[in-house]
């Protein structure tokens, strides 16, 4: 279960602190799905970064299955992020010199060389996202949609408890966007994981079921 209580984030500025998130509070149960929508500058990406332990909140706390990642050391936090969180970035961020299979295996390599079972899992995920003929292709040889699908497979290879996606379909056409969204929902749910998607697209939000709006840093009910 994901428990967010009073999450706030401010940045220092000469004219005074700029509050990006203001007391965000919500919980998400196992298998839960949430779409976060809001205008530009509302703090959606900041919320996702904090939930993904990429930056720390100014106030409030985040616990995942009772564990507070921000109370741990940076190394332990990285391990927590590696095991428990899958992140799909808006810009896929694939390593250009690595094949699709390699990119999927990157989270596994963070702790040890991938075992045969993990390699098979990575292959399976690539097949599941429709890239069964693209395992050895470099990102430069894939279309935008295909690259994003690789990013989805990468986010799921460690069977994380929480999957975060920041505008995963922002650069895809509607048809592919819908397919990628369904894939995210399906695969994340298979392992009982929670899914939070930041999106501008209503169609994507509808597929997740629960939609909350973030306006001026506050999460509306």
């Amino acid at each position: 279960m994901l428990d967010v209580q009073g999450l706030s984030k401010s940045y220092a500025a000469p004219a005074g602190p700029i509050r990006v998130l203001d007391g965000v509070t919500f919980t998400l149960g196992p298998g839960g799905r949430l779409a976060v929508m809001g205008p530009s500058g509302s703090g959606k990406s900041t919320l996702l970064s904090i939930l993904g332990t990429l930056e720390a909140p100014t106030k409030g706390c985040v616990t995942l299955d009772g564990a507070d990642p921000f109370a741990a050391s940076p190394a332990k936090r990285a391990a927590f992020r590696n095991r428990s969180i899958g992140f799909v970035f808006q810009e896929h961020h694939l390593l250009s010199g690595c094949t699709a299979l390699d990119n999927v295996l990157l989270p596994v390599l963070a702790s040890a060389a991938p075992s045969a079972a993990m390699v098979e899992r990575a292959r399976g995920l690539l097949d599941r996202v429709g890239l069964e003929k693209r395992h050895q292709h470099l990102p430069g040889q894939l279309s935008g949609g295909e690259r994003q699908r690789v990013a989805v497979a990468r986010a799921l290879v460690m069977a994380p408890r929480l999957v975060l996606a920041d505008e995963p379909t922002g650069q895809l056409d509607s048809h592919v966007a819908a397919a990628v969204t369904d894939l995210l929902v399906e695969l994340a749910g298979e392992a009982g994981g929670m899914l939070i998607v930041v999106t501008h697209a209503d169609a994507v939000a509808e597929r997740l079921g629960t939609v909350r709006r973030l306006v001026d840093g506050r999460l509306l009910p």
Binding site: C98, T99, L101, D102, L105, L109, A113, P114, A116, M118, V119, E120, R121, A122, R123, G124, L125, D127, R128, V129, G130, L131, E132, K133, H135, Q136, R149, H175, A179, V180, D182, L183, E186
Partner: peptide, 29 residues
């Protein structure tokens, strides 16, 4: 749910589908 143009099937069935997976066992270290 499958992606259009994807080979379908569950994870691990690619071999049965005759799809070339490249070197087996993975080589990423």
């Amino acid at each position: 749910m499958t992606i259009p143009g994807a080979g379908g099937g569950r994870t691990g069935d690619a071999t049965a589908a005759g799809i070339d997976r490249g070197p087996s066992g993975g080589s990423l270290s």
